[in-house]
Write a protein that binds this DNA or RNA. Structure first.
Lengths: 169, 169
DNA sequence: TATTGTTATACTCTATAACTATA
DNA sequence: TATAGTTATAGAGTATAACAATA
């Protein structure tokens, strides 16, 4: 119980990190049960909302690099969940769409999200949930997070952790 | 703005995931500035609190595997922040301690944590911060997270994501 | 025989850079 | 020349398994 740090701040930041990790990993467990990685799930949600997206713009929304999107879509296409069709307007582009199977998976995903939400917030009562939702939305807004954007966060400057020099002092 | 899902739940779970990721990555940026990976920081905090820990028990607290701890400690030792001494009681064990330099880094780490906390919670006023702290602590307790444990969460059953079978339907 | 720490190896994830085809 | 998508490659991070020393 660390004797020092008497007047230390609320530790809310650490709790946020930890709970966020728990939330993410539990959601990952659930999506894995229907054969989807968290990235797969993000792509499917995005394509459900914005059908016809190109790989390039999908990459932008995901905060991913185009080559990453190739393998993501390859995999979803192999599984029959997403289809690529060349754009007639600009034949360099694909237009990405959910197949019927993909749409069905999106529905499953929504059910999963609801269960996930309920499980995670189970320790709180209704009023507390509303409070928490408000406070988190406040924080998200304050930090420029679009509350409805499913971008992969955790993607700041990305300084590539060069295991920066020793610091013997 | 997704027209569907009218009566959907609070989305607090998603916000939690996103904000947690933001919190973690911002903290990582700060520790990287003093040459530490997030894991390094965790080890140093733990050794500050429980000097003399063995690699095995450190691994347990970190939720990491012993071989992982080897390279972690190797690196910190090379940088002069941690030292290994053989235990006299049981010569299979090491006793891990922070060096003076390591202790200095721990102090820096605490300053960083305070700045981090302040930056992250800046969008909220004092009362809201207290509220949030309470609600998060409530959640953490409800999910069996020791609020003072810095274990690497994100480590559930770990089903090893065998890219489980295609699901063409 | 069981346990601590170590090494060697392999696997996952994801980014970078060079390339093709369209524009 | 610039952009969409692709491929090949490489790197970081971390786990698994076999191993040596000690108990």
């Amino acid at each position: 119980m660390e004797p020092a740090s008497p007047g230390r701040p609320s530790r809310a930041a650490f709790l946020l990190s930890q709970l966020g990790a728990v939330a993410s990993s539990r959601f990952a467990v659930r999506t894995r049960e229907i054969g989807l990685s968290p990235s797969d799930a993000g792509v499917i949600r995005l394509l459900g909302r914005e059908p016809g997206l190109s790989q390039r713009s999908l990459a932008d929304r995901l905060g991913a690099v185009p080559s990453r999107v190739v393998s993501l879509i390859d995999s979803l296409q192999e599984r029959g969940l997403v289809e690529r069709t060349r754009s007639n307007a600009d034949r360099r582009n694909y237009e990405l769409h959910l197949t019927d199977a993909g749409t069905a998976v999106l529905r499953e995903l929504r059910e999963i999200a609801e269960k996930h939400e309920a499980e995670l917030l189970a320790p709180l009562n209704r009023e507390q949930i509303a409070q928490l939702g408000f406070l988190l939305a406040q924080l998200a807004a304050g930090h420029g997070l679009d509350a409805d954007l499913h971008r992969d966060v955790a993607r700041e400057p990305v300084v590539r952790e060069s295991r920066v020099g020793s610091r013997p002092a």
